[in-house]
Design a protein around this nucleic acid. Structure first.
Lengths: 147, 147
DNA sequence: AACTTCAGTTGTACTATACAACTAGGTCGC
DNA sequence: GCGACCTAGTTGTATAGTACAACTGAAGTT
């Protein structure tokens, strides 16, 4: 194998390992908020008000899946739906105060876990690694995952 | 935020994105072999004969989960169990010829997907990215995932 | 007004998972 | 050598997340 091939193999293997581990533990680390819920809340916070359909498209989830996730988040009081006055089919989703708090809390704990794991990395390596990951994920579809 | 903090944030975010995407698509890419089954088969091929308990410990899965996965893989004819003559509680798991073939096939298709995704990366970047991922995953536990 | 399209919900089914209870085989202390 | 414990694996039950298909209600289109 050429160095390229070896590197591609390694990337494949390590990404797979990571995905498996993340999947195995995501639910256990933050019982309050599954990985999907966390991601959805984060997305809502960043973008400040999205429709369920947008979320489904963005995360390649079925609209029924998003509908149930959204229902659960609403039941938990973390988001609220506001009917779009212009189009009564549409519900625009917004974080509630409680949602913002939980999100901040989970973000802190996740951030702490990552920071600890990356504690002994040099700044230069962190920056490069981050850039590689962004570049990798920016490629739409394929890989262990698609979009 | 310092550059380190920004980098850590980015790594966290991108790893999360990756994990979510992988989860979403793992089942769809290779209907023959889920991500977990693929990983288990790969592990058996590499290590040539493990007990279900070993697999459970290694992947932090419950033994019941592994038991069912193993049962499915056996039903599909991809692995076989051999009773340990020394200890009749133990079943040593081995790939069958069919298992080896399917594994090789899925490995090829996964590899092709990764290769395509990484096609326009310079060799130097591939090697560095691979090294970073290995380093990241080598840290046991914590992060988005544990072991 | 009749179609068609779109947003979202609900019914149903499947997979991966965990935990707990159980079975069957081994080991050890005395 | 037998009872108390330990270990490998299975099975019952429950849950989460997901998809697909059928449906409801609201908006556009002609």
């Amino acid at each position: 194998m050429t160095p390229e091939e070896i590197a591609v193999e390694t990337i494949q293997r390590e990404m797979t390992v990571f995905a498996r581990r993340a999947r195995a533990s995501a639910g256990r680390m933050h019982p309050e908020l599954s990985l999907v819920s966390y991601t959805l809340l984060g997305h809502l916070e960043e973008s400040g008000g999205r429709r369920a359909t947008d979320l489904a498209a963005h995360y390649a989830l079925d609209k029924s899946t998003v509908s149930r996730q959204v229902a659960a988040l609403e039941r938990a009081g973390l988001i609220e739906r506001r009917l779009d006055p212009e189009d009564h089919r549409v519900q625009v989703l917004h974080l509630t105060e409680a949602g913002r708090e939980i999100l901040a809390q989970v973000t802190r704990s996740r951030r702490a876990a990552f920071r600890e794991r990356l504690a002994d990395w040099a700044e230069e390596d962190l920056v490069r690694f981050a850039a590689y990951l962004e570049r990798y994920n920016a490629g739409t579809s394929a890989g262990t995952g698609e979009d």
